[in-house]
Design a protein around this nucleic acid. Sequence first.
DNA 1: GGCAATATCTAAAACGATTTAGTTTTACCA
DNA 2: TGGTAAAACTAAATCGTTTTAGATATTGCC
Lengths: 345, 345
Amino acid sequence: MADSDATKDRVTPAAVGERPTLKTIARLTGMAVPTVSRALNDAPDIGRETKERVRAAARQVGYRPNRAGVRLRTGKTNVVSLVMSADHDIMNHTARLITSVAASLRNTPYHMIVTPYFFDQDPMEPVRYIVETGSADAVIMNQTTPEDPRVAYLMEHSFPFATHGRTRWADDHAYYDFNNESFAHYSVSELSRRGRRNILLVFPPQNQSYGQHMSAGALRAAQEKGVVADRLTTAVSDDAGASIQPAITDYLRAHPETDAILCASTTACMAATAAAEGVGLTLGEEIDIVAKEAIPFLKQFRAGILCMYEDVGRAGTFVTRAAIDRIENPDGPPMQHLEQPTKLG
Amino acid sequence: MADSDATKDRVTPAAVGERPTLKTIARLTGMAVPTVSRALNDAPDIGRETKERVRAAARQVGYRPNRAGVRLRTGKTNVVSLVMSADHDIMNHTARLITSVAASLRNTPYHMIVTPYFFDQDPMEPVRYIVETGSADAVIMNQTTPEDPRVAYLMEHSFPFATHGRTRWADDHAYYDFNNESFAHYSVSELSRRGRRNILLVFPPQNQSYGQHMSAGALRAAQEKGVVADRLTTAVSDDAGASIQPAITDYLRAHPETDAILCASTTACMAATAAAEGVGLTLGEEIDIVAKEAIPFLKQFRAGILCMYEDVGRAGTFVTRAAIDRIENPDGPPMQHLEQPTKLG
DNA sequence: GGCAATATCTAAAACGATTTAGTTTTACCA
DNA sequence: TGGTAAAACTAAATCGTTTTAGATATTGCC
């Protein structure tokens, strides 16, 4: 039924599920394309009732102006460009990712647009926008969850994408991931080998894939080695470690037997170090602290911290290549990589 | 002469200095537009000699394809979107700037595109590209130099822009700046009030506007108070402090009378702290360390460091509004703001 | 009732590129 | 020399939008 209707209505060769344009609305309302355009732009020479009908139809079909069309006609891009140097000595995950993606795009015809989404915002929104308006050829995402709805959505629409982090469907899509399970397992084992028996884990939220991987690895090792491992969870993401310092202090006071802390990020480690020293513990003596960092940073500041590095730059490079590969070679197998952690240093 | 030539040649209403299109090249070579297109795209049914002539003409007029045209026709955007969460607890200048610009753009029709440039790259390149291809309505830049050629170029082309940091022409363009002169003057005065007499300055490169402002403020205060102030310069930018630690250590060894360090960034301060402790000095006792940070960070890790904050988020917000104002109100006065530092905390 | 003014809509052109379908020229072969 | 095929180009259509000019009712006024 839907099929015959669609076939009947179809005038242009445009397929059924195509993006609605002004023409779609014009056909729907029986008006001319310019009328629709002017109605939507609230021009003075369009009747009130007409405007309402047009707007209703636009809403109904989910019309979004084609930016290329507007731009070509008006010359207006609706884009503000933030031009900035990439050669900071950046210690931050986010900035490093941006920079490495941009670097990987340098000798390709592709441009990068960064679309941050905010805590009060549905993570689906930017992705849906991109697919619906066709404003990019591919999407790169990080901080995936196991059942990430964005991944499901993109796969469903067979839209090219690559993720930093795996999901439930990782076998079927392009991704780069650091083996956090292995990182945590190795770290706990190593701490146990050093004689530590009561380990505090300062880990990212457990709805994130990598948070779950870390926990799994740490707990597996704890079980194998017969050590105790408790977990504190940082507020929002990998870098949100600063705000957790009071919680760590409280924990150390309540559990004076604690002799090691395993931290998932630079800030978490700084919080842990400050907390440990705050309750009078000495690094390397009463307590060992292990940190995973995006960039060697803590080492220079504080001897005695055990560090492992996750090279975010490499992740950005891979994930960019993988995304372009999805665009240009959509039927081939998706590029995938699971990075093994290096040894503690 | 040029005038009459241009008038004679002019077929379409396009003005003289307009961007060249395929039509321009077609007119120049006497060929049809599709021929030009196919020649540039290296299609098999175009003669070798024709291709060469077309390419020469394209090069000569500086042809760049109009992305909106390509996108409209082919559906290809040549854009890869990096979608990422903005709610990191970011400690970094760069990421904070990106996030605040994006946030300020949220309820406007504008999108943000981030264009990083690399150390091996002419800083003019991205700006020139944007102006020549018309790929944005406005530009935001940071890390200005006093004679910033990008600013000169944009003003010359009356292209809307706003800067984070002043230039020689600051009176005539939109900017936001932190009063680094005042920051440095106040900090040195305050250290002098605390009885410090030999101050080491760890400052950004002196070709940057804000590096110069800082030096001016610090030296003025040093003169007024009769204290000694020496300067070490960090490698590349505000965050490039880590690599300078050895230099600071050397300095402290060579100048054991040093009783204060004034740092322009978080990493510079971490390097200074590590260096000072490395040579056996105690914070707040033999030495005072003052840092300017983009985000309160060091405080949580290390008591005894004196901090001032430059709110980069506010800068991003202002500079974004200022850029949009340039687009929408090009004849009005440019928005300008000089932020006063808060007191040491 | 007729004429001008107004309100509301439509037709056509344009932005800059690519694609499809011709068209012209040259070369070759019988 | 006539016919055919290949080579090298051009004409026209198209993508989605906005703008300018023009058309058709409708209304107001005398």
